[in-house]
Design a protein around this nucleic acid. Sequence first.
DNA 1: CACGTTACCGAACAGGATGTCCGGGAAATT
DNA 2: AATTTCCCGGACATCCTGTTCGGTAACGTG
Lengths: 207, 207
Amino acid sequence: MAIDRRVARTRHALYEALVRLIRDRDYDTISVEHILQEANVGRSTFYAHFTCKDDLLRASLERLKALLVAAREKHAAALQEGTTREVWDPSRALFEHVAEFNDIQLALAGGRGGAVLHDAINDVLADVLRDSFPAQTSNLVPRELAIRHVVSTFNTILDWWVRRQRQIGPAEADRIFKMLLLEGLPAAWRDAFTASFGAAERDGGAK
Amino acid sequence: MAIDRRVARTRHALYEALVRLIRDRDYDTISVEHILQEANVGRSTFYAHFTCKDDLLRASLERLKALLVAAREKHAAALQEGTTREVWDPSRALFEHVAEFNDIQLALAGGRGGAVLHDAINDVLADVLRDSFPAQTSNLVPRELAIRHVVSTFNTILDWWVRRQRQIGPAEADRIFKMLLLEGLPAAWRDAFTASFGAAERDGGAK
DNA sequence: CACGTTACCGAACAGGATGTCCGGGAAATT
DNA sequence: AATTTCCCGGACATCCTGTTCGGTAACGTG
């Protein structure tokens, strides 16, 4: 038996409503009732599908995760067939997606409630990345930490970028991302950092 | 007139209660009533001091921030007088503090509610760091982004470290922190990263 | 020490959100 | 067309929030 069309519509309506609300509200100021109103869904119906607001969020993120994984596998298949020779560059792709669609932008820019979202998205990205991250281990940095660091760096830049009204383009953002990740802080800031973090003995000039 | 002893005691009791509760609960599952009970403070009294739960959190973090700033300035003064020749190394100091006191550890390890806290602490650290960060600008990475990246990297490692029951010592954690920040991902992971993020064409082995 | 001031308590209150339950009715599947 | 399945809407108990008020005890001051 196929999935009842009604449940599909209901769930879809709820997903969409949540996204819509998240765009102009802090996540944790959104009540279930807001969602019901926005999605035009009955109260009891909601609780027939999800146990609570966070459950809906989790499901929504699972959906996002599935999208990301599907995109990656699709591209891998295309490479396999020789349909494309382009390199799969997820960070670049994500930056450009965000630049193009406003959907996700403000979701991340949120204040207090944004943190929950931010963290949740971090987890999703980490999951996706983990799948395509080699099992090989480095004696310098543990695998899991490496993954979290990649994701966290990405998210930091994305967050900053979105907040700053994107004065720079996605390509530039991606360039910075890869630079920070692969080479560390550029020399100018490195000196600044070691000076203030490592050696205040220059003069009284800490402040 | 000096500050009334009663208000000092009340505020202190509330701060302590919040910290105590945060240690074994998600921040956002903590109700004002829990705090009242834990601090043994009357309901109306609470609202005479703080407007809401988040207000208390903000104040607590201001307190933390003041501590950090004071520590830095104290050390700067000591250097000035020649009392010490030690270098002020905040990241190392923080890792060791966390290793020593359990106060903050689990606060960061929290699940959903931890995110709010995590974010708030990020802001505090960024504020502190900003004060001692040179105004000089790099054409490669904007100042504010550099600051956020330092803080975010620190927090990522701290988070991972705490979650992992700290199988490694604070010195080691600090070493990793500085390495990731100043040199980027170590070679082993860098190759892995560019391979999976930049070129899936190795074989079918993306998944 | 005695005074006036100030903070605390406890209880009570309205408002709003959560999660549950049911019965009627409509839509989908077969 | 029959029957299963889902949705709606209202009602409900429960919890939490933030405010108000009078009584009481602690505080700082002279």
